[in-house]
């Protein structure tokens, strides 16, 4: 299985006047396989979105990025290379469709600007836009193209954003919480649409979400992120059915349902560490119900059955 994206030891520090303010990413490793979906789950502030931004080369200049980002057909790439590649082979859709479109240009104008990058004849652009909009279920193409963002609903805008992402034939789609800002029903439709298109277009997907159940259903592989690092990764059914890391176990146990008795949800105590700079040992140790003496050292990622876990107790 060939991969479209491989990230090794990705670290991001934010520096101000030479002083490291925070290190939200502390060595991310992940791999997205061609045509497959890798789901990244984790709670607020664990570095999910930042990983996406680092891949796209869209971090602000105060960020210091270390580690390797490798793309199929390109090898190791830098932020400078990404300026050329992004929007073409790697595209991204964002959480809030209302703010992702420029408020003072029509949807048509904005899609055209992106389409024009591809050296397509003027007459072809119109055709491309119409066929893309219909393929995302926006059949009233004339109206959509002439509309300003505030004239369309969130669901329609997210569809238009998906259409924009597919103007080129991307190899990788990064979807950063694509349904969080939408109503449940609309979100479900949008996610299905992306998945249908994934089957027909064959792109790989990096699906970033805080919703464990959604990722658990819709991804092929899953990576659980905690405090700027992956703590467990593997084929989704394996991780979901047999989580090894105490954090993954905690997350799955925390999902409320009618079957679980009231007051007995697994509630990981405490909070995500707010300052990650200079963190030593296992980042989860403070909240871990199963900690042992060895946890003062950072646990390496080890392969257990079909998945990889960063926990000293995983071998037991």
């Amino acid at each position: 299985m060939n991969s479209v994206l491989k990230i090794t030891q990705l670290e991001v520090d934010f520096c101000l006047n030479g002083v490291i303010m925070n290190s939200p990413l502390r060595g991310m490793n992940l791999e997205v396989k061609a045509g497959k979906t890798l789901g990244i789950v984790g709670e607020t502030g664990c570095g999910k979105t930042l990983t996406a931004m680092a891949i796209m080369g869209l971090l602000p200049s105060t960020a210091v990025v270390r580690g390797d980002i490798e793309l199929a057909d390109h090898g190791r790439v830098t932020a400078v290379d990404m300026a050329r590649i992004r929007g073409e082979e790697i595209v991204m859709i964002f959480q809030n469709p209302q703010s992702a479109f420029n408020p003072i240009f029509t949807i048509g104008e904005q899609l055209k600007m992106v389409a024009k990058r591809r050296n397509i004849a003027r007459s072809e652009i119109e055709k491309l836009l119409i066929s893309r909009l219909t393929s995302v279920g926006l059949n009233d193409t004339k109206r959509v193209l002439a509309s300003y963002p505030h004239e369309l609903s969130g669901g329609m805008l997210q569809r238009a954003m998906i259409a924009m992402s597919l103007l080129s034939s991307p190899k990788l789609l990064i979807a950063d919480e694509p349904t969080t800002a939408l109503d449940a029903t609309v979100g479900d439709q949008v996610l299905r649409l992306i998945q249908e298109l994934q089957i027909s277009e064959g792109f790989a997907m990096l699906f970033i979400s805080h919703d464990v159940s959604a990722v658990g259903k819709t991804s092929d592989e899953i990576a659980v992120v905690y405090a700027g690092k992956i703590v467990e990764t593997g084929p989704t059914p394996v991780v979901m059915n047999n989580p090894k890391h105490p954090y993954t176990q905690g997350l799955l146990g925390a999902i409320p349902s009618a079957d679980k008795a009231r007051g007995t949800l697994v509630a990981i105590s405490g909070n995500v560490p707010s300052k990650l700079t200079g963190l030593v040992g296992c980042s989860f140790v403070e909240r871990c119900p199963m900690r042992i003496d060895r946890c003062v050292d950072e646990p390496p990622m080890v392969k257990v059955d079909e998945h990889s876990v960063a926990c000293w107790r995983s071998e037991q």
Binding site: A254, T264, L265, A267
Partner: peptide, 11 residues
């Protein structure tokens, strides 16, 4: 709230 915090509050 995040999932783990939600569980704390529900409990």
């Amino acid at each position: 709230l995040d999932l783990s915090v939600q569980a704390q509050i529900l409990n």
